[in-house]
Amino acid sequence: MAAKVFTIDGQEISATEGQSVLEAAHEAGIRIPTLCHLEGVMDVGACRLCLVEIAGSNKLVPACTTQVADGMVVATTSERLQRYRRLLLELLFAERNHVCAVCVSNGHCELQSLAMHLGMDHVSFPYTFPKLEVDLTHRLFGMDHNRCVLCGRCVRVCWYVEGAATKNFSGRGASSRIISDLNQPWGESRTCTACGKCVHACPTGALFEKGTTVGEMQKDRGKLEYIVTAREKKQWIV
């Protein structure tokens, strides 16, 4: 595969052809904020937090779905990008009911930590305070829609890693919801294998293991990466 050389935040780095700007940046130790990106499953460009500027174009592009090209000049930290990222986080916090103080994921949450690192000290939009369900019908896991950011990571691991195709989206716009099967209670799903991959893929406290209380739900991404790597490199245990 051909190597590509491009510049990111003033630093020249090389990448392999077909690599995304995000991957190449991470390999070079440059962190770009992400939320819908999950190592091991395809990218969808939904959260827009990884937007970057490309010299010569005034269109912002998501680093996760943009392939590197020779001579590309990428900027990831302009004042404008930082401001947009903060506003996007504010929109997410205002959209559902995030009460970190009483959340299972408090202290281990990607959303909470993004707010921290991007300097979001408050939400400047009115909170919408929607009335949302909590599905506790599953034997092992719970789903709290109040904390879901609709990143779709659970859906993608469920379809493309586990292959169960239990999780999906329903509705559109602000009425979008993550559902199990054809919107059954999770516990009644015939397809769910109770593998727990969605729980560990979820960046927030929306999906959790039953029996965890405030701050106890730590997600194990290592397991997912392990499975995906094993599959890609055919490292089967025989």
């Binding site: 969808v44 460009g45 939904a46 959260c47 827009r48 996007l88 929109l91 997410l92 205002a94 959209e95 939009f125 009115p126 919408t128 950011v149 609709l150 779709g152 989206f169 509705g171 559109r172 716009g173 602000a174 009425s175 979008s176």
Partner: peptide, 20 residues
């Protein structure tokens, strides 16, 4: 707002706020 597909954050949540 009603027709936003809900995939990306700015459109899904931003149109709600602009409409409000």
């Amino acid at each position: 707002k009603d027709e936003s597909c809900g995939k990306c954050v700015p459109c899904r949540a931003g149109t709600v706020q602009m409409h409000a």
